[in-house]
Design a protein around this nucleic acid. Structure first.
Length: 606
DNA sequence: GTAGGGTTAG
């Protein structure tokens, strides 16, 4: 009865023996050759377990199989990529297994082939968000393992977007560049957030690069991207280039919109130099000619531009114009006007404007109060400043550190240092943390009052907190210098370098001025050498002015004359202060410098 | 979605 079945089982057991022998052989070969032996498993069974999410069963089933290896097989077996993704998630989340970049992107390639784009998008979002520490170049290498450029482009594009959406702009920028090297075509949709982020970080040159690359790679920009580029160029004063981009826009079939024009107008307003408002006005005319209506923002830009160009009547005229055109002013409009009025010393009119805004139903905000309190402070109206400060507190608005700093500075400038300190204590009681600025105002106040010992004490307190900044050092150095204690200032110069604060032009100018004041021209010149040789900072006009004053006051007029020639040879333009020094210390004393005529031209121009 | 306002100290 049994022989047949016995024979069968013998066959089976032989087969198993052979098979296990082969497997042993293969695995021992694998250890020798290093090539893995594909483990035997049934894809259908595993797929079924994944689909039913029977994870513990799956765990048991695959316990002897290398998870990465199994994953590789699953992807190669043309198993539904959704199931592969599910298995991947389980591996990473529940079994804490990291999957190689190559396999990860193999998965993404198969998802892309199955057009599971939203799954790739959310996958990459998580991949980037969880702080993947993979290098961008390794990722691109993994992407390039697939030959399909279209699929790779889609993945690269989504990667750039994921970086941008997760504020990993540096990596996003690198991914953008690498996409170019690999010839992957990105979409304008992914480039835009990257561009906006770069703009927000004031990296205008990078925005410009991105734009040029988009054009080169034939990624069609849209109105928004064009406007971002225009803004980046305007922010760096490259107005002609900004205009060129506006022309490019037309070439691509887009008309500049109100944002494009506003950006350009604002660019001109914020540009230095003469006639900027004339240019801003010309753009305004141009936009109207092109049938783009100015909006609230346009008016706000102009109002702010005019008073900052010392043309407060211009601002008020624009304000009237906007009311005539039934454009409703907002809090920005009023804040700008109030700031302009305060700046022009018209405090009462500023208060009037505040009343006007309130009756127009526009609620003043923190910026309004900042402007008004600053206006009071700058015009010696301490009582009014404090009253407004109290009313802010009374409204339940928490005053800011800077608001306190404005008041503390105002007290100090009135010589009421004690009141300044009282305010500092008040802010500490209120739990508002004094910052370097608070200390700097007080230290400067003490120095001005000649109490440098107290200033140094406060400085030491600040040092214990690890807080002093370049300004703190400058204040104290100047304090010492003005008392004829340049040596102590020089000690501070060493100390600041130790703290990792890099001296600037101003730092050396303060030192040179201190030495000159003491008549120690040799030390002043040494300081110059230190600045030029050690810091590679070239003499600027202010530095020359300091030395010029030092030399001429000591009667070394020939040396002063040489300094003047030297600065001119370097292409530096003497300023009003240069002229005053030359006139008072040289010309009035009968010495005519070589470049007197040139200086005269400068002084009449400015 | 892209444009506009304020803030001390040297």
């Amino acid at each position: 009865m049994f022989p047949k079945s016995f024979a069968v089982s013998r066959k089976i057991s032989n087969f198993i023996k052979q098979a296990s022998g082969l497997r042993r052989l293969a695995s021992s070969l694998a250890t020798i050759t290093g090539s893995p032996c594909p483990p035997r498993f049934d894809v259908a069974v595993i797929a079924d377990l994944i689909e039913k999410q029977h994870w513990s069963k799956l765990g048991f089933h695959v316990k002897d199989i290398n998870p990465n290896e199994l994953f590789r097989q699953l992807i190669s077996s043309e198993l539904n990529p959704d199931l592969c993704l599910r298995y991947y998630t389980w591996l990473v989340k529940n079994r804490d297994i990291s999957v190689s970049l190559e396999l990860t992107f193999k998965l993404l390639h198969s998802l892309a082939n199955a057009k599971r784009y939203s799954k790739i998008r959310s996958f990459l979002d998580g991949f980037v968000r969880n702080g993947s520490d993979h290098q961008v170049h390794s990722i691109f290498h993994a992407i390039s393992m697939c030959d399909n450029v279209c699929v790779n482009s889609i993945i690269a594009d989504m990667l750039v977007l994921a970086y941008a959406n997760n504020s990993r702009f540096e990596l996003g920028f690198e991914a953008f560049k690498r996409s170019g090297y690999y010839g992957y075509k990105l979409s304008a949709m992914s480039c835009k957030p990257l561009m906006v982020a770069l703009l927000k970080q004031n990296r205008s040159a990078d925005v410009e690069y991105l734009y040029k690359e988009m054009i080169r790679r034939k990624i069609q920009p849209n109105v928004f991207t064009f406007n971002v580029v225009i803004n980046a160029l305007c922010k760096t004063g490259k107005m002609n280039k900004a205009r060129d981009v506006m022309e490019d826009m037309k070439v691509y079939g887009y008309s500049p919109n109100v944002v494009s024009y506003n950006t350009l107008i604002d660019g001109y307003c914020k540009l230095g130099g003469n006639g900027k408002m004339y240019k801003a006005d010309a753009v305004l005319k141009e936009m109207v000619e092109n049938e783009v209506s100015p909006n609230l923002t346009t008016f706000n830009i102009l109002i702010d531009g005019f008073w900052k160009d010392d043309n407060l009547p211009g601002s008020l005229k624009v304000f009237k114009e906007m009311l005539d055109q039934d454009v409703i002013p907002n809090v920005i409009t009023y804040n700008s006007l109030i700031n302009g009025l305060c700046n022009g010393g018209k405090i009462n009119e500023a208060i009037g404007m505040r009343d006007k805004m309130v009756s127009a139903g526009v609620q003043p905000n923190l910026i309004t109060y900042h402007s008004l309190i600053n206006g009071f402070c700058k015009n010696g109206m301490m009582k009014e400043a404090l009253d407004m400060f109290d009313s802010v507190k009374g409204q339940g608005t928490r005053p800011t550190t800077r608001m306190y700093n404005m008041l503390i500075d105002a007290y100090c400038k009135l010589g009421k240092i004690d009141d300044g300190f009282a305010l500092k204590e008040e802010m500490e009681r209120e739990g508002i943390v004094p910052d370097v600025g608070t200390y700097n105002c007080l230290i400067a106040g003490l120095c001005r009052n000649g109490n440098i010992e107290a200033a140094k004490k406060l400085f030491d307190q600040l040092t214990n907190k690890g807080l002093p900044d370049l300004v703190t050092f400058h204040i104290l150095m100047e304090g010492y210098c003005s008392r004829g204690e340049s040596r102590k200032a020089a000690m501070l110069l060493k100390e600041m370098s130790k703290m990792g604060l890099k001296p600037r032009h101003l730092t050396y100018n303060i030192m040179m001025k201190g030495y000159c004041k003491e008549g120690n021209l040799k030390a002043a010149t040494n300081m110059r050498t230190q600045m030029e040789k050690e810091r590679r900072l070239r003499m600027n006009v202010a530095s020359y002015n300091v030395l010029l004053q030092g030399y001429s006051q000591k009667g070394k007029l020939e040396d002063a004359n040489m300094l003047l020639n030297e600065m001119l040879e370097k292409g530096l333009v003497p300023n009003r202060i240069t002229y005053e020094i030359v006139k008072e210390e040289m010309v009035d004393k009968g010495f005519v410098p070589d470049i007197e005529g040139h200086l005269f031209n400068v002084s009449t121009k400015s």
